[in-house]
Amino acid sequence: MVQETLSGIVPEADVGSLGPDDRFREVLEIDSLDFLSFLETLGDRAGIRIDDEDTPHLTTVSGCADFLVARTT
């Protein structure tokens, strides 16, 4: 889900080559506008509201996955 969302934000990116612990904002050149759409889309897909306070957990793909698991179970 995280990877799909990222591909939607940066269509040119090869998200598959992203490591689970890569800081994707830097690797994919995602700026704050892109990141905002990422939070919005990810929250919609997971059915949760992601607030500004949550963003420190959301720097890597594995971090996002852990966060989603913690919040949705």
Binding site: E12, A13, D14, G16, S17, L28
Partner: peptide, 14 residues
């Protein structure tokens, strides 16, 4: 495949 067209990293020149 997309990968072949972007050999230099995950971000293609857009």
């Amino acid at each position: 495949p997309a990968r072949e067209a972007v050999p230099r990293g995950p971000v293609a020149p857009a």
